[in-house]
Nucleic acid binder design. Structure first.
Lengths: 151, 151
DNA sequence: CTTTTTGCAAAGTTTTTGCACGCAG
DNA sequence: CTGCGTGCAAAAACTTTGCAAAAAG
């Protein structure tokens, strides 16, 4: 079953209508396969004719039915990405220099996952996010080429 | 050495001035000991006389010199919290129902930390964030008291 | 045909900017 | 003293809201 038909299923199950705007937001997120901010989504979809209120309402809807989740970029901007089953569960490596987000594949039996499951918590668990911040090899390399760091 | 004097040290090391506004923002974050949004900080500090532009500039500054970090709340709001050495490294458990954030103490040799250190990553690591989402026991209890879930 | 969803305009809120003044060093 | 930082006002950007029109089922 394709991701799009799964998506349609989820809308149906929630008694929501399948509109081209919702499809388009979903497609953009699937295609890019990396978290996007509201403004990035807007500019991607603007040529398509998406209006801000529609996008905002769609994002809120998607969050509420669990299609996407929000995370914050290092710079303090909120970004959104697809959740399972639309994207596999993964962690993030984020470069603080160029801002790129690298998805990190995590198997269910990886040590991190096992360790997270065995924690003693103040409630039930729905999902978790792991974000690792640093400087990616490409940026490290570039920095070493430039003699001096600019203040 | 107290946290405040450490904070002053960091400002000095960055050749920044110690002002009462900066002290006040730092104090609020230390005192509350849980992540705060811009608007929460603003209302806490408003009676003190903080103006929005000053707060925003201060937050940006604090992020840039590594005093605080941003994370996103479930509702998609950006919140800020102190980083080591002003607060111990910790993970978060966040209740999706009441919105409360529970800091989770993590020792350096905890399984999660060890597992995270042994990952193969596309760059160098500066720090990481782990956020676990779910429903806290208090909210679970309340929900069981209410017969029906509201649609 | 009914009900949900979108388009649009307007209002509301938050954030940024520029510059003059005041305070830290 | 000498700028760095803040206060203030104004502008810009972003987000929300309400309602009529359009589209989905």
């Amino acid at each position: 079953m394709s991701k799009e038909s799964k998506f349609i299923e989820v809308l149906r199950r929630n008694r929501l209508r399948v509109t081209k705007e919702r499809m388009e937001v979903f497609r953009t997120l699937s295609l890019v396969d990396s978290p996007l901010s509201r403004s990035e989504l807007l500019s991607s979809l603007r040529n398509y004719g998406m209006h801000p209120p529609t996008l905002y309402r769609t994002i809120e809807l998607f969050v509420s039915i669990g299609i996407i989740q929000s995370l914050s970029s290092k710079s303090g901007e909120v970004i959104y990405e697809l959740l399972p089953p639309f994207a596999p569960h993964h962690h993030h490596y984020r470069c603080m220099s160029c801002g790129l987000t690298f998805p990190l594949e995590v198997l269910d039996d990886a040590p991190v996952e096992v360790a997270l499951r065995s924690l003693d918590l103040p409630g039930a668990v729905v999902y978790h996010q792991v974000d690792i911040f640093g400087t990616c090899f490409e940026c490290l390399h570039e920095q070493s080429l430039v003699g001096e760091r600019v203040r």
